[in-house]
Amino acid sequence: MSGLGGAVAGVRWEPLLDPRVLALGVAVGLVAVLVPVLRRGRDRAGWPVRALLVVVVGVLLAHPLLLGRTVATAGTVPDRQLLVVLDRTTSMAATDGPGGRTRLEAARADLAVLTERLEGARFGLVVWGREVEEVVPATTDRAAFLDAVARTAPEDPRAGTGSTVDRPLPEVTALLRRAARQYPERGSLVLLLSDGEDTTGRPAGTAARSWRPAGALSDGGAVLGYGTRAGATMPRADLPGAPPVVDPRSGAPALSRADPATLRRVASQLEVPYVGRGPSAGPAALRDLALRLPEPEAVVTRAVPTPTDPAWALAGLAALLGLAELRRWARDLHETRRAGRP
């Protein structure tokens, strides 16, 4: 649409001032115009022009854009959700990560690298210890996601009831099912970060629940494994400088041993790669993983309205009203001077 001709489909407002300040200014201006007329009956002929001038200037400062005919545009955009499932059980405090860091610290660092390479994705965070919690619903705010990751601490050893890699499975499956129902065009990836250790006292030969239902609802992802089979002690995150977690049966510092075999089984059930992130792990494997993650694309068709800015027309109308008011004022001044002559 050119000029101001053609059908107007709607109006979009882009005010040049705070809307509250603008509304207050228009109200004050109208009061200043109307009060003398109502109180003293003065200038009943000129007040409509001044009131209209106040309104036109207010509309001009509110900066309306007239939306005319629409132009259809189509294209594809990356549209994927990365559901991060992070183990925060006490064993993730073990210090056999790269550079002597804890397993959880290593997982945090890996997430910072991975999310940087997944531009445009939505990130969701589920953590588990004794309880499972969705800390961050799917969001494109990477900073908020990483802030929540940074605040995730290992569980107090007195709060846990033993760790198992299948504890978050029902919640993760429910979230994936809900995402598939609400956003069928959006791809969901699952990224599980854990050491795989099972300390629930599960009887030997008893298998954990299968992750296949979650795999059927996702479009890919990965399982990242932390720690070593040799194991390491677990410093008390809640008491810096205190002795490490103690094995109540022996009284000696407890060792947490990673279980990569369990994590490989989970990766197989999810049909995603397993990536070991032991003490010698470097960033190269993460770069390769980011490149291998599938990138679902959504086909987007948008009807984009073509806006027309009527500011010039409003400014012209305000100028005409101002000139009319100035002419009336000059005439009144002239008549007042003539009336005052002897």
Rank of each mutant, 00 (worst) to 15 (best):
G215F: 01
A174W: 04
Y226C: 01
W211H: 03
R202T: 15
G220P: 05
L189T: 04
T233E: 15
A254E: 08
A230N: 11
A207R: 14
R212C: 00
P243Y: 11
G231E: 05
P203Y: 14
T206K: 06
T200F: 05
D247M: 06
L192T: 02
G251N: 13
A237F: 05
P253F: 12
E197T: 10
P248Q: 10
A252F: 14
R202Y: 15
S188W: 09
A204S: 09
R178Q: 10
R229I: 14
G225A: 02
P240W: 13
P240L: 13
G196Q: 03
A230C: 08
Y183F: 15
L191A: 00
L191I: 00
G227F: 06
L239K: 11
P240M: 12
V223Q: 00
A232Q: 11
P244K: 06
L193T: 00
G225D: 04
L192N: 01
V223L: 00
E185S: 06
R177C: 06
S188G: 13
R249S: 07
T200G: 04
L255Q: 09
A252G: 04
S250P: 13
A179T: 00
A242W: 12
R181T: 14
R181H: 12
P243S: 07
A232R: 06
W211I: 01
L191F: 01
E185H: 04
L191M: 00
R177H: 13
S210H: 11
R177E: 15
A237D: 11
G221S: 11
Y183S: 02
P253G: 11
A230Q: 15
A179G: 05
T228L: 06
G251D: 14
A208S: 14
S256G: 14
P240H: 13
A252Q: 14
S256H: 05
A174Y: 07
W211C: 00
A208E: 15
A222G: 03
V245S: 07
L239E: 15
D238A: 08
L189K: 02
R181S: 12
P248M: 09
L176V: 11
A174M: 08
